[in-house]
């Protein structure tokens, strides 16, 4: 019997979830049709546990479901009022740190941040808005960067580096000064080899990396999260 075939089960909100050796809690839960809220984790990329939205309580201790390996007999709390309350606070912090104006954002209805906020019942930003000054980069002929909406998930950094082999994006600064930058001396996207066909061009979960001149092409009712909440859509994607 190889290591890969070793299996076990753990409890997720009192439901038994099977897993194979090496699977993280979020991978096993998703395969079993259970949604754990997340922003920076993507099934195609290595987890780096930065957004903390997937925080669960495993055997009484807080941990990131995207980095914590499932273990046999583990008891995991996921959708508890206490954890969802913390997740809502994390979302509120993200909303006030950037400039997220959903009413005129072309990503609305397809945005993971917006959909997760709806799913977790976030009604207000709660905290004072930062209103940061983040000019857009429209220098590229086919793509637009609207840094106002960045949540620092680094998926574009990973996609450009690991799939496209281009290293177009990086994070710069520390703490509250952390921000997404373009890897060019001019800091302009037009001065990189970025292309609209890159994996990084379609990975952004929010409305930062956008194809030009096609905004609002999808009518209301047909957008990703119009018909069902992200907790259902995310699981449906796993099973298709």
């Amino acid at each position: 019997m190889s290591d890969d075939s070793q299996t076990g089960t753990f409890l997720l909100d009192d439901e038994e979830i099977p897993f194979t050796r090496g699977q993280t809690v979020i991978q096993a839960a998703r395969a079993a049709g259970k949604y754990i809220p997340h922003l920076c984790w993507h099934p195609d990329f290595k987890a780096h546990g930065s957004c903390k939205l997937c925080t669960i309580k495993a055997n009484g201790r807080l941990g990131a479901a995207c980095t914590l390996e499932a273990q046999d007999g583990m008891a995991v709390e996921n959708r508890t009022p206490e954890l969802d309350d913390k997740r809502r606070t994390l979302l509120q912090l993200l909303f006030v740190e950037g400039n997220h104006f959903c009413p005129s954002c072309e990503k609305s209805g397809n945005c993971v941040l917006q959909a997760t906020a709806y799913d977790l019942g976030m009604m207000t930003p709660h905290f004072d808005m930062f209103y940061p000054d983040r000019p857009v980069d429209a220098s590229h002929p086919d793509m637009l960067l609207d840094f106002n909406r960045c949540i620092l998930c680094e998926l574009c950094v990973q996609a450009s580096r690991d799939v496209d082999g281009k290293n177009v994006f990086a994070l710069s600064g520390r703490g509250i000064q952390s921000h997404l930058i373009v890897n060019a001396e001019s800091r302009r996207l037009a001065d990189t080899d970025f292309s609209a066909t890159d994996r990084a061009a379609s990975i952004c979960p929010v409305g930062v990396i956008l194809k030009k001149r096609v905004g609002f092409a999808i009518p209301i009712g047909e957008r990703t999260y119009d018909a069902a909440p992200i907790s259902q859509v995310d699981i449906a994607k796993e099973n298709t």
Partner: peptide, 14 residues
Amino acid sequence: QGRPYWEVPVMVQR
């Protein structure tokens, strides 16, 4: 000003 033109019809109706 400074916003992409395709966003304008949705933004100004607010």
